[in-house]
Amino acid sequence: MIDFKDYMVADKLKEVDKVIIIGSGKGGVGKSTITSLLGLRLRDLGMDVGILDTDLHGSSIPFILGGDKELVIESVRGGFKPIELHRIKVMSLRMFVGDRPTPLRGERKSEILKYMLSLTVWGPLDYLLVDLPPGMSDELLTLMKYVKGKHIVVTLPTKTSLDVALRYVSFLNSLNYGTPIILVNNLMNINIDHHEVVSGFLNEPPNKYFIMPYIHGIEEHLYRGILPVESVKIIDKIIECLYI
């Protein structure tokens, strides 16, 4: 058997210049939020940006970026069109399943993701951002088969979250993907600069890490497609670090 979807994926990504993959070991650490911040900043810099939401059980990008109205899937030559939210192209399973629960086994998830990759007609993009679900499972592994990109690993400044994040990083390092960026998302708004857990875990080179501050009202900003000013400095450093 020949899986023609394999061949279609490459065609679909032909016009995509750079790919950034945002993952983490754990859920609720801010992956989708960071993905959205990156998207808005790159858009503000004049780039054409797409976001592929691969969280099949809890897809939240459309929601975060204000697309919680009825989502229309429009089929076009080659597959279907992403929706546009605040001038960012978005493809998410939410467009297909609405708010239904999605109990899916691993193999099914891989196939669904393959369909999303082979049928989404992005057109030319400067950046495709991929928002991953938590963990190192089917979504990440399937994605890696088809897409080479730079990785950002998001974590909270807690022992348990950092522990999992560093395992994720060592998995990526073992594949020679280049050093992924670790982004410590300071959701609990603690003083991280002198935080022994964080420095204890991350002081070892070559890990490159940044700290995103807690941002009050971040959800309202993102919903309206506005980048919170507090995030700009860090997001710019990340972009610079990923592609120079």
């Binding site: 020949i2 023609f4 979807k5 061949y7 279609m8 065609d11 009825e70 989502l71 229309v72 899937i73 429009e74 089929s75 076009v76 030559r77 080659g78 597959g79 467009m95 297909f96 609405g98 082979s118 049928l119």
Partner: peptide
């Protein structure tokens, strides 16, 4: 949810198949 554009999907699948055959 709202879905428009009948048979366009058949086109996409057919093109996926034919372009794959061409590559093979």
């Amino acid at each position: 949810m709202n879905f428009k554009g009948m048979a366009v999907h058949e086109y996409s699948i057919a093109e996926g198949i034919v372009s794959t055959i061409k590559k093979l």
